[in-house]
Design a binder for these strands. Structure first.
Length: 811
RNA sequence: GGGCGGAUGGCGGAAUUGGUAGACGCGCUGGACUCAAAAUCCAGUGUCCGCAAGGAUAUGAGGGUUCGAGUCCCUCUCUGCCCACCA
């Protein structure tokens, strides 16, 4: 008998599939289309186990859908712009383009080992001009609608990477650069922005329409950070100036005993009294030098400085002092707050420290005035609003103040516009030139793409080499033709990945970014699978771009990803995050060498719930390999046995197979890969048992079992399934065969075992026909030889029969 | 501080509406095969008592509802992830 040798059959079938083109999708057949893709990978040059965990199961879904008869498109590409290429260039003196393309080549070869059913006609790499051309097109479209703009603002700057970062790219407790971990500093710069805030409400509301993990939806909601409240105007005492504050709790205005401005607030120096001016200046100076880390660690001991100015509380008409403090952020709301120490933790701490008055303006059951409390309650110390609920007062106070134009309702968001400028070389050039006469001028669409030179010189400082490329920088003004300068900033790579799923569908179109009619037939992506690390950034940007294209470019859908699944994280065998320094990295190439791609795919899906991830176990992959070996052995014995006349175990085998079809089908639908695989293992074990009992390995029902199992296994372990399918005498691929159907009648067993409980404890088991009546079941249970003695002299108070499960007697 | 998860044998994990807890895999033990080992096959494997039949006990801890709770309710402990001075 031939041995199972994945090293031989896996490359063989990968070649056969490539040559026969069985995974090429007919793009014209759209009625039953199913578009499933993993998230666009970065071509780091090494395919790690996390990629396998993303791509393998995604391919399993694609293969399952294909066998169910749907017209599946699945493919992959590369998110090929970005910093690592430049770092490699600086460190190793190799051009980013060369480094990237060589990585793409080697990763493409590694990806081939997975045996995924990609249609490579749809692949792309974002660093190719035929892709980034359309990033530039998108930029111009946004610019036309006023949704791409340039502004001077304080931005997050990474001193190491020498570039601006989006808010979303500043991470961790101490605000470090997402890429290199260097603490980010604040710097004022001119940058390009995409006006994502125009879509805030849509981005929020449409979350309801998608089939995404609740966790991701919540993360996006929190990021958008909608809060409803009011803007209230406070008059500065003895001046014509006003301070506007944003508050979500206008009902607590009678408890506003002081105000606080952010140190950066423009009014600070204008209102500060002469005697306070020096301290105020000093405080501003001090806080401007504080790093984010220092600002955070001072969370519990607040700092601040008195301005010497006073404001009039419009509700109480009393004078309240105005402070500045860095616990108030210039970037949120109006950069100024009314402080209600009795009902806000931060204000409480500040008031305690600086000995400011504290007035509780509502009662709350269980709360004491020895401390602050928030939430709802009954108003007091609030004039005519006393006795109302806080919710009622909230509305009334704003309405009343609004009559005097002192307040108005206001909704605030945390979401900021998307800063897309990067002072880096390896990215999409922004299609803008600067002309002395005409200022900022967008290029004409016909002049696209602005080609990024691929032979540049790097200096160790990381300075953008485009700045020194005169042939790039010097150009002509599209309006007047006079000498002008090109923008040297490039786009954030998240622009690249914000629409690539549209380009996949029409990847070779060199006239337009995509054919709208085709896109409308194939979108949205039916199932999108990738890591939760993209819960905010990528997914929010992709949704924004999709909505923009919907509004202005004829897309008839507003959400790009119908269903989203986040795979878990594979940890090292020690349960820790895999890292080179820990030495716990599992190399998938080695696993493929030792066990085969099918075993690795299978193991990754078998180790636990897909969304959970977990530690990699060397024994575990040996187990899935053993399962494939056992299946292979059954096949070999079947083929060698020759034909037999009888079909002794026919019914039992048929029932077991149908049960397995049902289980695997339903589990795959839910992405419960682990239990689907265990069901297949059970069937193989069952066949082994029958073999041991009868010595038979061949009959019509054995053939049925082996063929069906091959089909069920095909989405998980595509190579061995194809090999076995061929051995069983099929000419065409198992992967385009029709997914087996189960017969409910055959799944149902004729004889079942019921548990018999006395007072809730299992005391015996009875074997009865499935369709037994309640009365019969109870009678048989009572007469059972183990049960009867225990009933002696006792009265049965109650008898419960759960069909198919148990009989419970209460005595 | 806020939000969302999670806690089941030696390990990864099953248990779809409250119905025989521990499927499946790993590991371990014993047996078959072998000169021997590996591989393979067969059997066993939550814990405690017992030669056994059997019994007791058991899903982070404690309480509750129920004929019956891993699953529902209350209290608590531990833990993972995300966000966080957002007014």
């Amino acid at each position: 008998m031939r041995r199972y040798n994945p090293r031989e059959i896996e490359p063989k079938w990968q070649n056969v599939w490539a040559e026969s083109g069985i995974y090429k999708t007919n793009m014209g057949r759209t009625a039953d289309k199913f578009y499933v893709i993993p998230m666009l990978p970065y071509p780091s040059g090494d395919l790690h186990i996390g990629h396998w965990y993303n791509f393998g199961p995604t391919d399993t879904v694609a293969r399952f859908r294909r066998m169910l008869g749907q017209n599946v498109l699945t493919t992959i590409g590369f998110d090929a712009f970005g910093l690592p290429a430049e770092n490699a260039a600086i460190k190793r003196g190799i051009q980013p383009a060369v480094w990237t393309h060589s990585n793409i080549d080697s990763m493409t070869k590694q990806i081939a080992q997975i045996g995924a059913s990609y249609d490579w006609d749809h692949t792309l790499a974002t660093c190719n001009p035929d892709y980034y051309h359309w990033n530039q097109w998108l930029f111009l479209k946004l610019y036309e609608k006023g949704l791409a703009y340039r502004a001077k603002a304080v931005v997050n700057w990474c001193p190491k990477d020498q570039t601006v970062l989006a808010n979303e790219q500043v991470v961790g407790d101490n605000n470090v650069c997402e890429r290199c971990g260097t603490p980010v500093i604040q710097k004022e710069m001119e940058s390009w922005y995409f006006k994502i805030t125009d879509y805030t409400e849509h981005l929020l509301a449409d979350l309801e329409s998608v089939d995404w993990p609740e966790k991701v939806k919540t993360m996006q909601q929190n990021w958008i950070g909608k809060s409803q409240g009011a803007l209230i105007n406070f008059e500065v005492d003895g001046s014509d100036k006003h301070i506007e504050v944003f508050t979500t709790r206008p009902d607590t205005i009678f408890g506003a005993t002081y105000m606080v401005l952010a140190p950066e607030h423009p009014l600070v120096m204008k209102i500060a009294s002469d005697e306070c001016q020096p301290q105020v200046e000093q405080y501003i100076e001090e806080t401007s030098h504080k790093t984010e880390l220092e600002r955070k660690t001072s969370e519990k001991h607040k700092t601040g400085s008195l301005t010497g100015a006073y404001a009039i509380n419009p509700a109480t008409q009393t004078k309240i002092p105005i402070w500045i403090a860095d616990y108030v952020l210039a970037s949120y709301g109006t950069g100024a707050i009314m402080s209600v120490p009795a009902h806000d933790e931060r204000d409480w701490e500040f008031a305690k420290k600086f000995d400011l008055p504290i007035v509780h303006v509502y009662d709350q059951t269980g709360a004491s005035e020895d401390s602050w409390y928030n939430g709802e309650g009954i108003m007091k110390h609030s004039g005519k609003y006393d006795g109302l609920s806080t919710a009622e007062a909230r509305e009334k106070i704003v309405t009343d103040l609004a009559k005097h134009k002192i307040a108005k309702e206001q909704t605030n968001y945390k979401l900021r516009d998307w800063l897309i400028s990067r002072q880096r070389y390896w990215g999409t050039p922004i299609p803008i030139v600067y002309c002395e006469d005409h200022g900022t001028v967008p290029l004409d669409e016909k002049d696209l793409p602005v080609i990024l030179p691929e032979d540049v010189e790097f200096t160790p400082t990381g300075r953008n080499p485009l700045l020194d490329r005169e042939d790039f920088v010097n150009t002509k003004c599209p309006i007047c033709g006079k000498a002008a300068k090109r923008e040297t900033d490039t786009m954030d790579t998240f622009v690249d990945s914000s629409w690539y799923f549209l380009r996949y569908l029409d990847a070779k179109n060199n006239k337009v970014p995509f054919d709208t009619e085709l896109i409308n037939k194939w979108m949205p992506v039916d199932h999108y699978i990738g890591g939760i690390e993209h819960a905010i950034l990528h997914l929010l940007y992709a949704r924004f771009v999709t909505k923009f294209l919907h509004d202005h470019h004829g897309l008839d859908f507003e959400e790009p990803f119908k269903k989203l699944t986040n795979q878990g994280i594979i940890l090292g065998p020690d349960g820790q995050k895999m890292s080179k320094s820990r030495g716990n990295v599992i190399n998938p190439d080695e696993m493929v060498k030792s066990y085969g791609a099918d075993s690795l795919r299978l193991y990754l899906m078998f180790m636990g719930p897909y969304e959970q991830g977990g530690p990699y176990d060397m024994g575990g992959i040996a187990g899935t390999r053993r399962f494939l070996d056992r299946f292979w052995t059954l096949l070999g014995e079947f083929l060698e046995a020759g034909s037999t006349a009888g079909d002794a175990q026919g019914l039992e085998i048929t029932a077991a197979v149908h049960k397995t079809i049902k289980k695997v089908s339903q589990d795959l639908e839910r992405l419960d890969f682990n239990t689907a695989i265990s069901a297949m293992m059970e069937l193989v074990n069952h066949l082994y048992k029958l073999k041991a009992e009868t010595g038979l390995t061949q009959s019509a029902s054995w053939r049925f079992a082996l063929e069906t199992l091959t089909q069920l296994l095909a989405p998980f372990a595509p190579h061995i399934a194809e090999e076995i399918w061929e051995s069983l005498g099929h000419d065409s691929s198992v992967h385009i065969s029709t997914w087996p159907q189960w017969d409910e009648k055959l799944v149902a067993e004729e004889i079942i075992t019921l548990a018999v409980q006395i007072n809730g404890k299992v005391r015996s088991e009875i074997v009865v026909p499935t369709d037994i009546s309640e009365a019969e079941a109870i009678e048989i249970a009572k007469a059972d030889e183990k049960i009867a003695p225990q009933l002696d002299g006792k009265t049965i108070k109650k008898a419960i029969y759960v069909p198919g499960r148990l009989v419970s007697l209460v005595i």
